[in-house]
Amino acid sequence: MTSKGVGNGQKILVVDDEHMSDLMRSVLRRLESDGFRPIVVAPEGPHVSGDDYEAQALFAMEDERPAAVLLDVRFGEYDTDRFKGLSILKKIVDRDSSMPVLMFTQYTHGPYRDTAVMASLNVSSSVDFIDKLASPEEVVLRLRRLIGSAPETIKIGSLFEIDAQNAAVYAIDNGRRDLIREIQGMKLEILNELAAAFFRSEGELVPFSRLERFSEGEDSRASLRVRIRELKVALGNAVSREFGATELIINVRNRGYRLVQPVD
């Protein structure tokens, strides 16, 4: 689940002639609630064509310097604009090959189309495709991953904040951040690993094989279990709570561990 403010005010350029539709409005709403700033390209005039969108989108690229572009494939009712989005994509990538672009398409994307589009692009470009029927949540998740920059701090619900770069874990209390001193060394490494997976995807678990390198002794699984328990106790103490087996860090059917958002 994406928490509020994950977008950090990053601008997302939205280039879609159906930006006023209910479906697109739900996406724009979701972007805003997740802390992004959608910039909608909306040329004015009696007969707006795909070229108008292209000109304005390229102008906004320079003017607004967005973090990513959300781009539709099909523009207008003119047959010549059927794949206008692909030509806009090409021009965007020509200008800035590292610009993340999420193609918002109404088409099924068969191997022909994907391969054709990808082949026409620079290998370093980060372009992805998503069905227009995708849920707003899925759009934001995909966009966030395409932008790729992991945040400086990862928030676990409203209770904790993990700052991997400065090797610190904080408990949050009414906006105040208190450093949890007990979480250091291997315990911090384990928490970082769990937090990175938590940020990437709500459903991702970290298998034992990846966590056991942060434990020692002959029975590394048992040692890991002890560290996880200590970690939970330290986090719990910091917020005067006790986290049960199905809270915060859970063992998923003996496959690995996973962070889950604590209930406030």
Binding site: S135, S201, E202, L205, P207
Partner: peptide
Amino acid sequence: ILNIADRYLPIARERGLDLVWWCEPG
């Protein structure tokens, strides 16, 4: 796999299911 998990996580949640995924090696 990650994209598919993203697509089905909200659906699984609505149906009260716990969906997890992982890959080895990382």
